[in-house]
Design a protein around this nucleic acid. Structure first.
Length: 493
RNA sequence: GGCGGCAUAGCCAAGUGGUAAGGCAGCGGUCUGCAAAACCGUUAUACACCGGUUCGAAUCCGGUUGCCGCCUCCA
C-alpha cells in the first residue's frame, strides 16, 4: 500500500486516487529567466521518479508541469538584455529541456506555459470577483484573503500571527496586507493582454490555479513543488482555486527539500547556485540522479564534491556488475522494464544470486513515501550479493544459476527504469565514460593503447620491472590499469 | 514574533517499539607477478542531552541545547 507524506495533513497517508487507477498530478515548474540549477534538478527528478513509480505500479498518470513565462523577474531580465520576454523565456525553456533531457528526465504529459492560458486565468479571476473573493484597485485585481476562511490551512499559519510587512512594504490599496495580486495593470514596456479590467498581465499564483484545473479538473490528486512554495504560492493557489470553484482543490501536497552547496543554502541572493550544465561537464547524469535520490526527498541534501565522487563510484559499481552479468548470461534482449519477479524461482535457500526479493522489497521502500534512499540501499545490497554469487561460482555456471542471474538483472533493470539509473548498455556506459574522460584530460588514446600493448608483451616475458614502469607512466596520466584474465583493460581515473 | 524541520559511527545516509540497511573512507584478509576490481572479516560500550510512558524506545510524550528552513525572489 502506497503511503505519501501529505504536507497538508502533516503525516503519511495511504494514497487513494480520486478515480480508481488514475492519478492526476501537477508540479510547479520553472520560471524561465535563467539557467536551471541543481535545485531545479532535484525537484524535477524527484517528481520524475514519483511519476515513473506510479506508472510502474499500474496507475495511469496525467502529469502536468508548467513553465512560468511571464513575471517580474523575466521582464526585468529581458529589459536588461534588451530582448523581448518571449525571446528570453524561449531561450530558457530550450535550455530547460536540454538540461532535463541530459538528466534523463521524462517529459510530462502536459507542459503548459502561462502565456498560453491567459483566457483561463482571466476566467478564474472573474469567478473570484463574482464570488466576492477578489476586488479591483485601479487596473489591478487583488485576492481578499480575509474572505477565504481556510486561508493558511496548508502552511499552518493564521493571518493574525504573521508579521505583515516585516520585510516588504505593504501596498496601501490592499484591504489586508496579505492580499495578493491576481492581475497587474500593464506598465509601458511590459507584455500585456486585454482583460475586463484593462490591459495587464497575470499575477504569480493565478496561472497555476488556472492551468492545473484546466488540465486536471477542479479537484485532483497530487500537487507538488519545492518546499519554499508552501507559503505563499501554494497557500494562495488553494485560496484561489477553492474560492473560485467551491470544491476541494488537491488531495495530496508533496514538497521536496532544498539542495545545499557545501553546507550553505543555495539561493539567488547568495549567488551560489550550481548550474546543471556545469555539473554535467564533470559528472555523469546518472551520478547526479543517484546523488539526488540517495537522500529522502523531503530532507535537505548537501551537494559536495565528495558526495558526487561517491555517487560516481556507485554508478560505476552498478554498471560493472551489469557488465559482469552480461558476460555470464549474455546481453539482455529488451532493455525495457519487463517484470521478472513472477518467473523467479521460490526462495533459493541462500544460494544463487540472493537477490530474489529485490523487486518486492523495492516496492516496499517506494511505497513508504517514495523512500529512494532505502531503495538505493537495496540496490547496492543486491549488487554485493550478486558479485559474491559470481565470485563463488567456479568454473562452469549452472543453467539454474544463469536463470537466477538473468532474473536478478531484470529486477535491477526494472528498478533502474524507475530511478533512471543503469539505463545504458554497460559496454556503452564504459565506452562513453572512457572517451569523455580522454577528451576532458586531453589524452591520446592511441598512445595509451600502444603503451598497454607494450606492457602486455613485457608481462608475457615476465619482465615485471618494465611492466610496472609502464603502469607508473600511465598512472602519471591518470590512466588506471586492470589486468583481467581476458587481458588488460584501462580507464581514466 | 509566528509556523515547521532536523540532530544515527571518520564522512554521507535508511530505520515500520523488540536490542542499529546501504554507500564512501580506514584496517586485516582472499585473489593477483605486483596492482586494480570483486568478495570476506573488522570499524557505534545503545542513535545530541535530561526526564517520562512501556516488559522493552533511535523509534512515542515533555523539556533542554544546537543547527536549518519558511513568513521576501528562489525548486
Amino acid at each position: 500500500m502506497l503511503k505519501i507524506y501529505n504536507t497538508f495533513t502533516r503525516k503519511k497517508d495511504a494514497f487513494k486516487p480520486i478515480e480508481a487507477g488514475k492519478v492526476k498530478m501537477y508540479v510547479c515548474g520553472a520560471t524561465v529567466y535563467d539557467a536551471c540549477h541543481v535545485g531545479h534538478a532535484r525537484c524535477v527528478i524527484v517528481f520524475d521518479v514519483i511519476v515513473r513509480y506510479l506508472r510502474e505500479i499500474g496507475y495511469e498518470v496525467t502529469y502536468v508541469r508548467n513553465f512560468t513565462d511571464v513575471d517580474d523577474k523575466i521582464i526585468n531580465r529581458a529589459n536588461e538584455l534588451g530582448i523581448s520576454t518571449k525571446e528570453l523565456s524561449e531561450k530558457y525553456i530550450k535550455e530547460f529541456y536540454e538540461d532535463m533531457d541530459a538528466l534523463k528526465v521524462e517529459r510530462a504529459t502536459q507542459e503548459p506555459k502561462a502565456t498560453e492560458h491567459i483566457d483561463e486565468i482571466i476566467g478564474v479571476i472573474q469567478r473570484l470577483l463574482e464570488q466576492g473573493h477578489a476586488y479591483k484597485a485601479g487596473g489591478d485585481v487583488f485576492f481578499a484573503v480575509e474572505t477565504f476562511n481556510d486561508y493558511g490551512k496548508l502552511s499552518g499559519r493564521r493571518l493574525e500571527d504573521m508579521q505583515a510587512g516585516a520585510r516588504v512594504e505593504v501596498d496601501e490599496r490592499k484591504r489586508s496586507p496579505f492580499d495578493f495580486v491576481l492581475w497587474k495593470e500593464a506598465k509601458p514596456g511590459e507584455p500585456m493582454w486585454d482583460s475586463p479590467w484593462g490591459k495587464g498581465r497575470p499575477g504569480w499564483h493565478i496561472e497555476c490555479s488556472a492551468m492545473s484545473t484546466h488540465f486536471l479538473g477542479n479537484h485532483f490528486d497530487i500537487h507538488g513543488g519545492g518546499e519554499d512554495l508552501i507559503f505563499p504560492h501554494h497557500e494562495n493557489e488553494i485560496a484561489q482555486s477553492e474560492g473560485a470553484f467551491n470544491e476541494p482543490f488537491v488531495n495530496v501536497w508533496i514538497h521536496n527539500g532544498f539542495v545545499k552547496i557545501n553546507h550553505e543554502k543555495m539561493s539567488k541572493s547568495l549567488g551560489n547556485f550550481l548550474v546543471i550544465k556545469e555539473i554535467l561537464k564533470q559528472y555523469h547524469a546518472e551520478a547526479v540522479r543517484l546523488f539526488l535520490l540517495s537522500n529522502h526527498y523531503r530532507s535537505p541534501i548537501d551537494f559536495t564534491d565528495q558526495a558526487m565522487v561517491e555517487a560516481e563510484a556507485g554508478i560505476e559499481k552498478i554498471y560493472a556488475l551489469m557488465q559482469r552479468i552480461e558476460e555470464s548470461v549474455g546481453p539482455c534482449e529488451a532493455r525495457a522494464t519487463t517484470a521478472s519477479s513472477q518467473t523467479l524461482p521460490p526462495e533459493g535457500g541462500g544460494q544463487g544470486g540472493g537477490a530474489e526479493d529485490l523487486w518486492p522489497r523495492f516496492c516496499e521502500a517506494m511505497d513508504d513515501d517514495f523512500n529512494t534512499a532505502r531503495a538505493i540501499g537495496l540496490v547496492f545490497d543486491a549488487v554485493r550479493r550478486l558479485n559474491r554469487a559470481m565470485d563463488d561460482a567456479t568454473g562452469a555456471v549452472s543453467q539454474e544459476e544463469l536463470t537466477r542471474l538473468a532474473s536478478a538483472r531484470a529486477d535491477l533493470m526494472r528498478i533502474g527504469g524507475v530511478l533512471g539509473i543503469g539505463t545504458e548498455a554497460p559496454s556503452d556506459f564504459f565506452e562513453h565514460r572512457k572517451t569523455d574522460a580522454l577528451k576532458r584530460e586531453a589524452i591520446d588514446q592511441a598512445m595509451v593503447e600502444r603503451l598497454v600493448a607494450e606492457r602486455t608483451q613485457a608481462r608475457r616475458r615476465k619482465d615485471w620491472a618494465r611492466a610496472d614502469r609502464i603502469r607508473q607512466q600511465l598512472a602519471g596520466m591518470s590512466i588506471e590499469l586492470e589486468d583481467r584474465p581476458e587481458g588488460t583493460t584501462w580507464k581514466v581515473g
